[in-house]
Amino acid sequence: MMTSTRFDIPTHLNATEPIEWTKGKRDQVRLMVMKRDNGERYHDQFSNIASYFKKGDLLVFNNSRTIPPVLEGKSPIGEVEIRLSRKLSNHEWEVLIVNPDYHIGLSIHFPGNLKGTIVDYSKNRPLVIMSFNQSGSNLFNAIYQIGKPIRYEYIKKPLPLEAYQTVYGTVPGSVELASAGRAFSWELLTELKRKGIQIAFLSLHAGLSYYEKDRWPSPEEHPEPFNIPKETADLINETKKQGGRVIAVGTTVVRALESAVNKFQTVESMDTVTNLYIYKGFSLKVVDGLLTGLHEPEASHLDMLAAFIKEDFLFAAYEEAIHYNYLWHEFGDMNLILPGGQ
């Protein structure tokens, strides 16, 4: 973990609602571009992002779609809120119990005859394992009917689930928005293809990034399921062979791709769970550049960014972003980190 968190986010820089609600389009957020080798920075609009790529580059997107993971029910200890984090089987999930007083064996009754029972503690504390009385598509249908998106304290009012989706998300499973790709509109994706910039997709279902009460997942023990299709793996390997750059759209994509590197230093198609922790000094094998949001000082995502760029460059850029009133969190502005000298 980083030994120092050298910045504070002023309250007025919390993005509280989707940019398209005020400016009409998703791609109207701002973009800070950083060079990996020297920390050189540019300030632009996200709508101009295609100009920073070149023919032969490959952008890899996470097409996981956000589900509504907040469920409210009743139990012998009173009303209970749970937050789904990770699917373990057709009927079991790792969940966060927001209420403090719970125990193994506690059953919670949700609307629509859905019942969940705490069957064990997860090794990823404070999460627990919950078994539901429905499974498969029936359980997913129940979750969609009664669940709500997670709303952290900086969001002023409840927002519809659609606000927490990318335009290309097709595989339901994330409990929080894989937000790095949120600013892409269909027009921007079409522009990328028109310029000869390649696009590929994988799925990584993001778990909870915050456990309330100033608790965060351990970066060394934060399993998340992912799937890399063969066509995506093949395109990545061919891009690298031809000297193109692989740009990850989001830290979730970095985590999946770097987890799938074999002994030949190529990416394999796989469907599994990753526990990979990427930090300062980590040797990136696949990913050359990263598009990401702006991260809180407590977030382990900053550790990953330190694998791309020196901490001094990174924190100088964040201080500049604060000075220029960039917005933070899932509806905020974006940061593109690219190799220098290209």
Score class of each variant (00 low, 15 high):
Met32Cys: 15
Lys35Ile: 03
Lys35Pro: 03
Arg36Tyr: 07
Asn38Ser: 14
Asn38Val: 04
Glu40Met: 03
Arg41Asn: 05
Tyr42Gly: 01
His43Arg: 01
Gln45Lys: 14
Phe46Leu: 11
Phe46Pro: 13
Ser47Gly: 04
Ile49Glu: 12
Ala50Leu: 10
Tyr52Cys: 12
Tyr52Trp: 15
Phe53Gly: 11
Phe53His: 11
Gly56Phe: 12
Asp57Tyr: 10
Leu59Trp: 00
Val60Phe: 02
Phe61Val: 10
Ser64His: 05
Arg65Met: 12
Thr66Arg: 07
Val70Cys: 10
Glu72Cys: 06
Glu72Gln: 13
Gly73Thr: 03
Ser75His: 08
Pro76Met: 02
Pro76Ala: 06
Gly78Phe: 02
Val80Arg: 01
Val80Asp: 06
Glu81Gly: 10
Glu81Phe: 08
Arg83Phe: 08
Arg83Lys: 15
Ser85Trp: 02
Leu88Gln: 03
Ser89Glu: 04
His91Cys: 10
Glu92Pro: 00
Glu92Trp: 00
Glu94Met: 13
Val95Phe: 07
Val95Ile: 15
Ile97Ser: 04
Val98Ile: 10
Asn99Trp: 04
Asp101Cys: 05
His103Ile: 06
Ile104Pro: 04
Gly105Glu: 02
Leu106Gly: 01
Ser107His: 03
Ser107Asn: 03
Ile108Phe: 14
Phe110Gln: 11
Phe110Ala: 08
Phe110Asp: 03
Pro111Met: 09
Gly112Phe: 06
Asn113Cys: 00
Leu114Gln: 02
Lys115Gly: 00
Lys115Arg: 13
Lys115Ile: 12
Gly116Met: 02
Gly116Thr: 03
Gly116His: 06
Thr117Glu: 03
Thr117Lys: 09
Val119His: 01
Asp120Pro: 01
Asp120Gly: 08
Asp120Gln: 08
Tyr121Cys: 06
Ser122Thr: 09
Lys123Phe: 11
Asn124Ala: 11
Arg125Ser: 15
Arg125Gln: 13
Pro126Phe: 12
Met130Asn: 06
Met130Tyr: 02
Ser131Thr: 08
Ser131Phe: 00
Ser131Gly: 08
Phe132Ile: 11
